[in-house]
């Protein structure tokens, strides 16, 4: 499958990294810091893996990127803008530039697979006729063409994961972050989904994949951020 040219973000003019962390720390409430002194950049158009053992803080780091949390200290910039200085009403615009694949999928149970995948486009106000074919094509490509009317509760874990990935990429986000995107699918489907993410990256999107899957990491010559106990123990190396 080839992703069709769609919102076409112009990334060529941007010298700013898509994501920049500077001495970032995060704690929940008055608890201990679960992320400490994180400093790294994800250049626009790059492809990175984020690895580390369970509890290392991978999901928390992703939450900081899609701004579900604010850092306790430090500076986070997305597309060159300091997220702490961003007014609240600018967040929807920011989030439309980011596609997120959640570990727990977060599909809406009362919507069909088709409507779940189309959700970002529907929220963006696009007419249904403009995206119906694209959604159907993408669902066919991820192997859910015959399940588009089904509801998430009737899907297997792997099918839900594919639907979640389709929802994250359907609007051609400039930044895609994925939390264990291949955790529930067989190796063949994992390779297929990875190809989709690589294709998105080839079109200019910045991609960050959090995963335990060493086979997946080794399948691409992409830089790796390695977390352990909330700290980066391995800085990105060039691809």
């Amino acid at each position: 499958m080839t992703l069709k040219p769609r919102p076409a973000p112009d990334l060529t003019h941007s010298r700013d990294p898509a994501v920049s962390f500077d001495s970032v720390g995060l704690r929940y409430g008055r608890g201990p810091e679960i992320l400490s002194d994180l400093s790294f950049d994800l250049p626009s158009g790059s492809f990175h893996f984020l690895t580390g053992p369970s509890g290392a803080g991978k999901s928390s780091l992703l939450r900081l990127i899609y701004r579900a949390r604010q850092p306790s200290r430090g500076l986070i910039s997305l597309f060159g803008r300091d997220t702490a200085l961003m007014p609240r009403d600018a967040l929807p615009g920011l989030r439309r530039r980011i596609g997120v694949v959640f570990q727990d999928f977060r599909l809406l149970e009362h919507l069909s697979v088709f409507d779940n995948v189309a959700l970002p486009l529907r929220v963006a106000g696009q007419p249904r006729t403009s995206y119906a074919d694209d959604v159907a094509d993408l669902l066919a490509w991820v192997g859910l063409g015959d399940r588009m009317h089904a509801h998430p509760a009737s899907l297997s874990g792997g099918e839900q994961q594919r639907a979640a990935i389709a929802r994250a990429v359907i609007s051609r986000p400039e930044l895609l972050i994925a939390d264990e995107p291949t955790g529930n699918v067989d190796p063949a489907m994992a390779r297929r989904l990875l190809r989709l993410l690589v294709e998105l990256n080839r079109l200019g999107a910045t991609v960050l994949i959090a995963t335990h899957d060493i086979t997946l990491v080794r399948s691409l010559a992409a830089p790796v951020l390695e977390l352990a106990d909330g700290r980066l123990v391995s800085q990105p190396r060039a691809a």
């Binding site: 929807p92 615009g93 920011l94 989030r95 977060r106 959700l119 970002p120 929220v123």
Partner: peptide, 8 residues
């Protein structure tokens, strides 16, 4: 879900 896909 709406919030995270950019709904104001």
């Amino acid at each position: 879900a709406l919030h995270l896909v950019g709904a104001p």
